[in-house]
């Protein structure tokens, strides 16, 4: 038995990995890692842009049926959860507003609050966060598993760009569906607000709707939709990127999925912040 243990000699530099490193080294290494991952991210975005360009030139190749399937997955199949969350967010906004506005006897302005908040911010934001969890995670898991199964290698050696074949249809499906879902979310949020307004604060349905109509203008709605389009790109690209970067094990796919959702949500919130500052500066 002891002899069996010594038949295969120890691999010398296999030990090297486990050596403890001084703190300064670890910090430095993480800094370098951060830099390389930023470069990778930029590289991915660049590649995706090139693929889109190829698509516009009519050279990109992916299966139309894939695009339709992804559209179904992130459009129609997302409706129930978007419905639920949007109505509830509308309700919550109305409640929060109602308590404060009642002090001034200005309950009718609940309609303004809900309409503006949903159209400008919450519609796109909540849809974005739902979609990061639903779709971004799914994309990362799909592509990560394809990486594990060598399916992406098989595409590459076949001379088919994974960026065009796998990423483009997912990206397009998201960019097409997110604005529509956001519009739907706005509508349901306003409905949720109306439930509180009409049900609990002597406002009639007609009053509520007229007030809403008077406040909402095209600028508010299109701002929300523009945000939704940008969130869609962030969600789809971070999902696909983490999936493509995934290692070749089950644990790595799990990490890729988590990381995709985190990247997407951070991206969405930061973008929203930038939008808020820009809108303020531009007076939109």
């Amino acid at each position: 038995m002891l002899h069996l243990a010594s038949v295969v000699p120890e691999q010398k530099d296999s030990q090297q990995k486990k050596k403890r490193q001084p703190f300064i080294y670890v910090v430095g290494q993480n800094a370098v890692l951060f830099a390389t991952s930023t470069v990778q991210m930029l590289g991915f975005i660049g590649e995706a842009t090139l693929s889109c360009w190829n698509f516009l030139l009519g050279k990109a190749r992916f299966r139309r049926i894939d695009l339709l399937l992804f559209i179904e997955e992130c459009g129609a199949e997302s409706l129930p959860i978007v419905t639920l969350i949007s109505v509830l967010v509308g309700l919550i906004l109305a409640f929060v507003g109602a308590v404060q506005l009642k002090l001034f006897g200005a309950q009718i302005y609940v309609a303004n609050l809900v309409a503006i908040a949903m159209a400008r911010e919450m519609g796109a934001l909540m849809t974005g966060i739902i979609m990061s969890g639903r779709i971004g995670a799914a994309y990362a898991a799909q592509l990560g598993t394809m990486q594990v199964n060598e399916e992406i290698d098989a595409l590459k050696t076949m001379g088919i760009s994974p960026m065009e074949f796998l990423v483009l249809p997912r990206l397009f499906a998201m960019v097409l569906m997110m604005p529509l879902l956001t519009l739907y979310s706005d509508l349901l949020g306003i409905m949720g607000g109306a439930i509180v307004g009409v049900g609990m604060m002597d406002i009639t349905v007609v009053q509520y709707l007229t007030q809403t109509q008077a406040t909402l203008d095209m600028a508010n709605i299109s701002l929300g939709i523009a945000k939704a389009g940008i969130y869609a790109i962030i969600i789809a690209l971070s999902g696909c990127m983490r999936g493509m970067q995934s290692g070749r094990s089950a644990a790595a796919v799990g990490e890729a999925t988590t990381s995709a959702v985190v990247t997407a949500i951070v991206g969405i919130i930061v973008t929203d912040g930038i939008f808020a500052v820009l809108c303020d500066a531009l007076g939109i």
Partner: peptide, 28 residues
């Protein structure tokens, strides 16, 4: 890519594209 077009590769686990049927895999 032109050279690889003349090569066929059988991966360790088959590496079939999981969203496509066998016929679609071979046809691609």
């Amino acid at each position: 890519s032109r050279i690889m077009r003349k090569c066929g590769i059988l991966y360790q686990k088959g590496a079939l594209w999981s969203s496509m049927t066998l016929a679609e895999n071979v046809a691609l």
